[in-house]
């Protein structure tokens, strides 16, 4: 009894440590006062202000587009890479490919950002593409490191997938491409969803790499928030952050629920 009480206290302390800052952010988004630290009564006026702030809304829209496209690209590249690593057996350069695919996981962001910036500049001088830096370069950069995370998630799932079901599909007359579309991909669905969500979140969250490879006119949300915060935290940002938290939690809850349902059915 005593032990379970102390465990509960520890768990509670842990959750407070993790979520108290987020909770205070949500509470202060409904603060009447402009001062972040002083409670001036309940109000939703910052949400109204937010809707009239084109800079923040634009940045949010840019971030959403960048994250969606780059997560999709990352998932496709990650799927192909892990398919090659798991299913093609031993081929020349397999070890190298495996290492290269996962390298961005351990590479400091500053280095990834800087190297990509140099690459884009060099490319522009050489072949004229990408012309200038902006959304396209951020998408490419995010797809690059997103693919590394996606490949890790997908590789482990693909490794545990029974190869016999692919053989069974071939045995029943399906050509290899058909097997991939009809059997392999649907069996990977839960892993594909988590890989996409992971790449999406990482992209939405990224400040360092985006700052390196962006150009005028394409500022992601983290970049705008970061530059605004340097001039003092506005409750408007609290409101925006609250909206993002609500959206992200909703997506994760739905995804977890779906995956649990799928897992229960396939077992």
């Amino acid at each position: 009894m005593q032990r379970s009480l102390s465990l509960r206290v520890a768990a509670f302390a842990g959750f407070v440590f993790l979520y108290a800052p987020i909770l205070s952010l949500v509470i202060f988004s409904f603060n009447e006062s402009k001062l972040v630290t002083v409670w001036g009564g309940f109000s939703t006026k910052w949400y109204g202000e937010l809707l009239n702030d084109p800079q923040l809304l634009d940045a949010a829209w840019v971030s959403l587009k960048v994250s969606t496209i780059s997560a999709t690209l990352a998932t496709i590249i990650g799927t192909l890479a892990s398919y090659a690593l798991v299913r093609f057996g031993k081929f020349r350069g397999r070890l190298t490919l495996g290492g290269l695919v996962t390298a961005p996981l351990v590479m400091p962001e500053v280095i990834i950002g800087l190297s990509l910036l140099l690459l884009f500049v060099a490319l522009e001088n050489l072949i004229g593409w990408p012309a200038g830096r902006g959304m396209v370069t951020i998408v490419i950069a995010h797809a690059t490191f997103g693919a590394a995370y996606a490949a890790v998630v997908l590789q482990s799932r693909m490794g545990s997938l029974d190869i016999a079901i692919e053989e069974a599909a071939q045995d029943l007359g399906a050509r290899p491409l058909r097997v991939f579309w009809d059997i392999t991909l649907p069996s990977l669905a839960p892993a594909l969803i988590s890989a996409w969500l992971l790449a999406f979140t990482l992209s939405l969250d990224d400040l360092v790499i985006a700052s390196f490879v962006t150009g005028p006119g394409a500022s992601t949300l983290p970049m705008v928030i970061f530059s605004k915060v340097r001039l003092g935290v506005s409750p408007e940002i609290n409101a925006l952050a609250t909206l993002i938290i609500v959206a992200v939690s909703a997506v994760i809850v739905v995804a977890a629920w779906q995956m649990q349902k799928a897992a229960a059915e396939t077992r």
Binding site: D162, A168, A169
Partner: peptide, 28 residues
């Protein structure tokens, strides 16, 4: 394999987990 008029019953059955029984049977 996909062009042989031969079918296999696999050791651990290798049923498609994302399909129901009828769709499994109808796959071929």
């Amino acid at each position: 394999p996909y062009r042989r008029n031969v079918n296999t019953v696999f050791q651990n059955y290798a049923l498609f987990p994302h399909l129901n029984v009828r769709d499994n049977v109808a796959f071929g």
